[in-house]
Nucleic acid binder design. Structure first.
Lengths: 210, 210
DNA sequence: GTCATTTAATGACTTTAAGTCAGTTATTAT
DNA sequence: ATAATAACTGACTTAAAGTCATTAAATGAC
């Protein structure tokens, strides 16, 4: 009598399918313009049902962001097996992030969004997500790499590794926020997106070299 | 018959007093939680009147952000008179930004906000503001300083000055976004806010040295 | 000073979208 | 077959942005 187990699984599947629908709507219209009715329609469920699975539209967005972090993690996973020094690994990490951004612009946006939306309306679930990001995200890998670099003496040791790693993470996000928002920069400088990213990475890593 | 002139002035004053009220409400409740009715109450005007002066709540927020940029500009104005090399001037610029953030957290938030809110709902007035920031903000001063640094050979010349300056600007914003959001970092690292900022600045500038 | 005209301000109303909940339908266990 | 439980529904409530017909105030021509 595995009914209970099957039900749990089905519930999980339904949940995922709602996230699928939400994703589609968020990515095509943007979070603000997306309505719960849109998502209900897309998911072939009623609005009420959405609220059986998620407490709010924001909550639904957090679920999408979690997926984004998951995918990013998966993509960056290979870095730790690379046989190079820490700086080079960090560079690789950065390049993977850039690939992620190109391949999954919607997911990138959802990550940017959770790091930026209104500072005053902190919800419990966001706190939860914050710690999730901290524990699970590339930040964590960056911390390891920075530690390695300090040991190797390729990275300066006068600043706590946690701080360096977080600075790198923030700056990656900042770069994308900037590029997403001010796409006019390309015209201004005549640089390609790729060149810009490379320079960005270069500058970041140059700053932490010992 | 300076009636016309007086009317224009009064209209301007009313506009400013509405921004005053909006500011108070935004800063105390946050943009999302603030309502136009709150602002109407605070300004001792009716809601309808607010819409005679501003097209939307977002528009009203942009006006606040413009003020913020104005104040920041005023504060950073002294840097160009400092008699030091470009790197040192940029460091000073960064420190002033930090002072601004401490003194005017509300204004800081409003600047962060315009750089981050939903990427899909771009309004005309935001484009206008973007070019305003670009023309009037410290970005512009940073560009000048970077040019100076390249001439002096204190700053690397292999990356376009505009790109370097914009990277610095983004990263300053990113730093504050991060600190505002993850204030837990202090606990994690045991660093004071001041130390953190100093390290941040150091890293940024180290990256661009020649 | 009066009054027609223009300008400024009002707040009740409309609209939109998030979130709720009493009622219906489907599933399970006995 | 049926009572109990779980899943789902969509009409309804609520909140807040934005509108607009109406009222009030200010102006300037006479």
């Amino acid at each position: 009598m595995g009914t209970k187990e099957r039900k749990r699984r089905e519930k999980e599947q339904r949940r995922e399918s709602i996230i699928d629908a939400a994703e589609k709507v968020f990515f095509s219209k943007g979070f603000a313009a997306a309505t719960m009715d849109d998502i209900a329609l897309e998911s072939e469920l009623s609005k009420g049902t959405l609220y059986l699975y998620f407490n709010s539209k924001e909550d639904l967005h957090l679920a999408v962001a979690k997926r984004a972090i998951g995918i990013l993690n998966q993509m960056t996973g290979i870095v730790k097996d690379v046989k190079k020094n820490a700086i080079q690994k960090l560079q690789e990490l950065g390049r993977i992030f850039i690939k992620f951004a190109e391949k999954h612009p919607g997911y990138l946006n959802s990550i940017l969004r959770i790091e930026s939306v209104d500072f005053n309306d902190i919800s419990l679930s966001r706190d939860e997500l914050k710690s999730f990001i901290f524990r699970e995200s590339p930040v964590n890998m960056a911390i390891e790499l920075v530690k390695q670099g300090v040991k190797e003496k390729t990275i300066r040791q006068d600043i706590p590794t946690g701080v360096i790693a977080n600075i790198l993470w923030t700056q990656m996000l900042g770069m994308f926020q900037f590029v997403t928002f001010h796409n006019s920069l390309f015209e201004l400088t005549g640089m390609s997106e790729e060149q810009l990213f490379d320079n960005y990475l270069e500058l970041l890593l140059n700053g932490i070299r010992s």
